[in-house]
Simulated assay, not measured.
Amino acid sequence: MQNSTENPHPQHPDLDLYPVDRLVEVLVEDQLNAAQAVWAVRLRLAEAVRESIPRIAAGGRLIYVGAGTSGRLGLLDAVELYPTFSWPRSRAIALVAGGADALADAVEGAEDNDQQGEADLLAVRPVANDVVLAIAASGCTPYVLGALRAARASGSLTIGFANNPNAPVLTAAQIGIALVTGAEIISGSTRLKAGTAQKIALNSFSSALMVGLNKVYGNLMVDLRPVNAKLVHRAISLTMHATGVSEEIARHTLVLCGYQVKVAIVALKCGIDAEAAKVRLAAARGNVRQAMRG
């Protein structure tokens, strides 16, 4: 397997001699390749979303698996789903080689243990409706491959993300997404554009999945969890924007609806109380447009 992420960059052998302006310029410029790498596999990402929606809608979980930067990016995507889309924390699980200690410090050798990857995956009791996202810049991380092996055996849908074409993580997964970013400006530092490509891909995947699960109305984030003052203000603004009511009415209705923006929108648009709006939303599986049609 060609491991292009480890190759020295051919264009900048004297990087350490660059003045600061030039140094920042080339680092930022190279990051543009990350977005291009994700764009090139947008159809594979769409396939992954289509295959995931029915499984997750049927009660499945998202299980992210990675080591180092890839593991931390998986964790970041998982934890942000709760405040953004009210996604249950128990249904977005992140497995990182080395466990919690690896989030702040490198745990030497953890990523090389395929048996631990398999054991960690089995410990969360994967089932057929689960979706396992295996993330590895090199595409050959043993910990991730061990988890993939266990996921396939359990019948879970497996989606592999790697930054080298034809990498084992891609071929071992049912859907392989090759984010081919090539050599890094700083040789082997995949926290650079390889990591950026992974972040874009995971953001795009999980956001599209949440739209497909009726977590968005129009382009409004209407299923957020207002866990702080900023998000409370955002909930009020979203309700105002969706319904055209004043801030006072939006705030009052949200209080009656337990600060559930979707419920408040349906209640205001249909002229019904919160309980009736909840019933409509439940019947429409959370789809605001269908709920408003009754």
Rank of each mutant, 00 (worst) to 15 (best):
G188M: 13
N214M: 01
G212E: 13
A197P: 07
L170N: 01
T190C: 07
S206L: 00
S206Y: 02
Q174Y: 13
S207W: 04
M221A: 10
A178S: 10
L209H: 01
A208L: 06
I186P: 01
I175V: 15
A172P: 06
S187P: 08
T196Y: 11
F205A: 04
A172Q: 14
I177W: 02
I175K: 15
A208V: 10
A208M: 08
G188S: 11
A172R: 08
A197D: 12
V222S: 10
Y217F: 15
A208E: 03
G218A: 12
L209N: 05
A173P: 03
S204E: 15
A172C: 08
V180E: 10
L220P: 02
L179A: 07
V169Y: 09
N214A: 12
A197T: 03
L220T: 07
A183R: 07
G218L: 10
K199D: 03
N203C: 08
A173I: 00
L220H: 14
E184N: 13
A197I: 02
N214P: 13
T181E: 13
L220N: 00
L202Y: 00
L179E: 02
G182P: 13
A197N: 03
I177Y: 05
I186V: 15
L202I: 00
N203M: 06
V222T: 00
A197L: 07
V222N: 02
I200S: 12
L179F: 08
K199N: 07
G195I: 04
Q174G: 08
S189W: 09
I177E: 02
G218S: 13
L213H: 02
I175F: 11
T196G: 09
S187L: 01
A173H: 00
F205V: 01
Y217T: 09
L170F: 09
K193A: 09
K199F: 10
A183M: 05
L209S: 05
T196R: 02
N203P: 01
G212R: 02
T196S: 10
V222P: 06
A172F: 15
V211L: 02
I200W: 14
I185A: 03
R191G: 13
G176H: 04
A178R: 01
R191I: 11
A201N: 04
Y217P: 03
G218H: 05
T196H: 06
S187V: 13
T171R: 01
V180S: 09
K193G: 05
A197E: 13
N214F: 14
L220D: 09
G188L: 12
P168D: 13
G188P: 04
V180Q: 10
G218V: 11
G212C: 08
K199Q: 07
I177P: 00
S187D: 03
G188W: 12
I175C: 09
T190M: 13
G212K: 06
P168C: 14
S187Y: 04
F205S: 06
M210I: 04
L209G: 01
L202N: 02
Q198C: 12
I185S: 04
L220A: 09
V169Q: 08
A208P: 09
G212D: 14
